[in-house]
Design a protein around this nucleic acid. Structure first.
Lengths: 181, 181
DNA sequence: TTTAACTTTCAATAATTACTGAACGTTTAG
DNA sequence: CTAAACGTTCAGTAATTATTGAAAGTTAAA
């Protein structure tokens, strides 16, 4: 398992980015490695390619499974497990978004709702509640939107993109249509 | 500077979330604190409220300024600096997105483009390039979309949301319109 | 110019997070 | 049943990241 410089480059970059997307460097590299390899890899191949311990691979795979980002393959007559990305790039990105929504946005919305319903007993708390309401509304909007986007295939998205660069135009379209009907 | 339990709760939560949005726990708390306070705060007030050192506040503010998330106020006859959020909630969210795009997505796009243009000298590299192309396309789409969304006011967004829950419908609308004309 | 009131910096250290590798668990072939 | 081939766990340790606090920098009033 020797990576070509080009591929190694990509894998290292995934490592750097991985930490920003919710997992750590090593796990980012693992995703990168699995994604640029056409065929599933064994835990030992991963350990060797990334120069990390076997135990670390096991922990990383476990974490990736909790994100639903990898699936396991088996080859008849072979006891090893072979790991591969669980879906297309688009699927993986969706899963990361979805998981982060669950872990970050949902708990925040819950907290905000609780606080907003509670009665404010000072002007400071009143202001605080107003701000929390803004955050709440923003998060809810973003959540709904991302749910919408996730339903689209990449092709539909591309098509939407080509509409003419401006979402405002979509709004205008909507308005026109609604007036006609 | 004594926080009411309700407000403290929110601030602590911002701390937890802060780390996920690109900064660390303390800096997350600082943002939370500034956002739920109607009036600008001095560095000492922040240090006292969050029970951290004065030096840490200074570093945190510096970091937040690099994200363009805080602005400085001055009161005539007072040499202290007063810090406040740099815009509405929506503005702040936009700035975070924008900054993360610059720090994460743009460098990734550059790397991917380089790799894709380079000639593949093995079937593995060929496949790798195809995958990189997918990632590239996805990131570009997401980038363009977020740029579009950022142009909208929260009100426009809300309006778009109310369109009827499904973006696919917008695409259908578009198709119908284009066929008619 | 001195002093007081502030801010910034950064080396030392604390806190957190990630990794290793040995021990243990499980499955299957012989 | 035993050994080999694999996967998992976790205590100990390494690496990284965050924080403190003392020293140095800045500004303005006296």
């Amino acid at each position: 398992m020797n990576l070509s410089p080009k591929i190694e480059n990509f894998v290292l970059h995934c490592g750097e980015m991985g930490s920003r997307w919710g997992f750590n460097r090593t796990i980012g590299q693992m995703v990168g490695l699995l994604v640029i390899n056409e065929h599933p890899l064994t835990a030992n191949q991963i350990a060797e390619a990334l120069k990390i311990s076997r135990g670390n691979v096991s922990m990383g795979i476990k974490e990736l499974q909790s994100w639903q980002l990898v699936k396991v393959h088996h080859i008849p007559g072979d006891r090893k497990e072979y790991y591969a990305p669980n879906g297309t790039i688009w699927d993986l990105a969706n899963k990361v978004f979805e998981e982060r929504r669950k872990r970050e946005i949902d708990p925040t919305l819950t907290l905000l709702r609780d606080q907003i319903l509670d009665t404010a007993n000072s002007p400071e708390e009143k202001y605080a509640q107003e701000q929390m309401q803004s955050i709440h509304d923003l998060l809810e909007t973003v959540t709904k939107w991302s749910a919408e986007l996730q339903r689209l295939t990449p092709e539909q998205l591309q098509s939407l993109m080509k509409l003419g660069s401006s979402v405002s135009k979509v709004i205008d379209l909507k308005d026109k249509l609604l007036k006609k009907s």
